[in-house]
Nucleic acid binder design. Sequence first.
DNA 1: ATGAAAGCGCTAACAA
DNA 2: TTGTTAGCGCTTTCAT
Lengths: 339, 339
Amino acid sequence: MGSKVTIYEVAKAAGVGIGTVSRVLNNNASVTPETRERVKEVMKQLNFQPHTYAQRLARNQSETISAIIPFFTNYFFVEVLRGVQEGLGRLGYDLTLFGVNDIEQVEPKIVRALQRGRFDGILFFSMRLPDRIVPRLKEASIPMVLVDAFYPKFDSISVANTDGAYDATTHLISIGHRKVGMVNALQRSAPAAERLQGYRRALESNGINYSEELVKTGVSARQDGFNRDAGYEAMVDFIRMGKEMPHAFFVSSDIQAIGAMAALSENGFRVPEDVSIVGFDDIELARHFKLTTMRQPMYQMGQMAVERLAARMSDSVLEVVHTTFIPELIVRDTTRPFS
Amino acid sequence: MGSKVTIYEVAKAAGVGIGTVSRVLNNNASVTPETRERVKEVMKQLNFQPHTYAQRLARNQSETISAIIPFFTNYFFVEVLRGVQEGLGRLGYDLTLFGVNDIEQVEPKIVRALQRGRFDGILFFSMRLPDRIVPRLKEASIPMVLVDAFYPKFDSISVANTDGAYDATTHLISIGHRKVGMVNALQRSAPAAERLQGYRRALESNGINYSEELVKTGVSARQDGFNRDAGYEAMVDFIRMGKEMPHAFFVSSDIQAIGAMAALSENGFRVPEDVSIVGFDDIELARHFKLTTMRQPMYQMGQMAVERLAARMSDSVLEVVHTTFIPELIVRDTTRPFS
DNA sequence: ATGAAAGCGCTAACAA
DNA sequence: TTGTTAGCGCTTTCAT
């Protein structure tokens, strides 16, 4: 029957008032060591457990945060969540999950998460925050931090796309490639645009001219072009260039890189003997395809997100800060010096 | 400031008692349509939101369930969770997540989830339920259903491992293979033992003798042998058989199959020209490797789990039921008729 | 059908 | 340091 022991019975059994019981429950200093011990003893004997919701009601705080998260990001999702849980565990907070399957659901889920008293904070993942919800968010004044997303008015944790793309491209150049192409995703996506920037800068830093012909995007628009087919299509386009085709590519995501490699292999090109590829993300598949790529520190991002949220929960007047992690180059077997 | 409107202000503004307000909040029949309308109107105008924790305290139920889930299962985890959320959404329940990184954490997480009043139900995933926790679980008498796990005393949703292995093996036989080997995981794992059973039965049904030499397990013990290296090692062992090596294999998991295929490819064997492989699970990688495999209906398992939990929450005297899903054969490119 | 009042189990302010 | 009491915001009798 799940013990129904309340502080009243504990108080009676220990011969004290409920106030004292509450105090030992909350580690309030104003209890003599002896009383504290006695009460604790009784609690143990009676197998007392505080009723979470009574505490939450009286304290007017929930000790719970919510995560609004798209269901399509697999590995990234799991890893970041691990970081989040790790951080939350230390704070003694619970995590309630709102998974969204498509953008339509974003708003209703946020609204739900905004219900009075429900959560002390919100973590919003990998999606565009709908503008029209922002006023309500601000009005509710519940702390929120964006992870792998960006909005000027809210704290955010994300990855330095420009720097990552710069490093990826530079790696290709450093091993001798002078003509490096880029398989990009749709420009409307901020990460895609930033990664293009990084690519351009790397070329410029090395005195290589940027050429529009060397940047291609597939037509498949799913997930803003960050999908396997789009990578395949873009590479097919490159292959059509014949002699003019670059022998090294920076691809804006691993999943596209896998598509690109399929196109390459179907057309008789070997990786890395004939062409070098570096991806971005370091998804689980990357390891299996031995793909050289840029790794995002997912676990740390999760931890940092919680840290940031905690800071904001305890002090709401902090100024907005956007934290950015630099991705790390993981060299595997899809890149080889130009020969 | 997050509206602090309570039923008291609503009652006053609507000229009714708080009881009436509560009644319309809970769709209680005993309110005249006019009164109901008026109260609803006021609620809207005042932007009233019930305080979740006050409701939970008064009702003595939490409307949230917890999921205790290992962090290592990626794709499976995400898919099942999607099913769970879908089901939960309909019930208006919240999902709080307890991710566990290693077995040591299982018990503390369960204890936490057992805290009085905290959850109306528990979903326990893919792990061995520690025997010593069972009495506490029973005593707490909070509904629990196991997903992808088994324990006699609790409802469970899982996959028919024996049948799946039977079908996988039968597929190999049906396309002409008479000598089919099996790459197994550690026998101490129930799914591994069951899959071996299915394999044996399929052979027997087809009048083929079972031979111990044709079943091998890798030495890597991580995740009970369900890992890439173990598959690799087992296949290397098979390759050492030389002429005696089977040309068709049922592998007890996709991840092992991928390791096995790596060993095959490194030793000059082509799949499926030289050897046929069928895996089990249909993880995301399987699609990319074009692996023929047995798919577990993950999404449906999640939904069913919620359904079952809901049934048990509303009626605690139901008898224990173990639901079993039959995996489906997905034929891709790693199997080919024997020639 | 409705209002008043008594909880739900705890926290926190107030006396003592 | 401690006990008492008044909330926290709802749900649920119990009268009416």
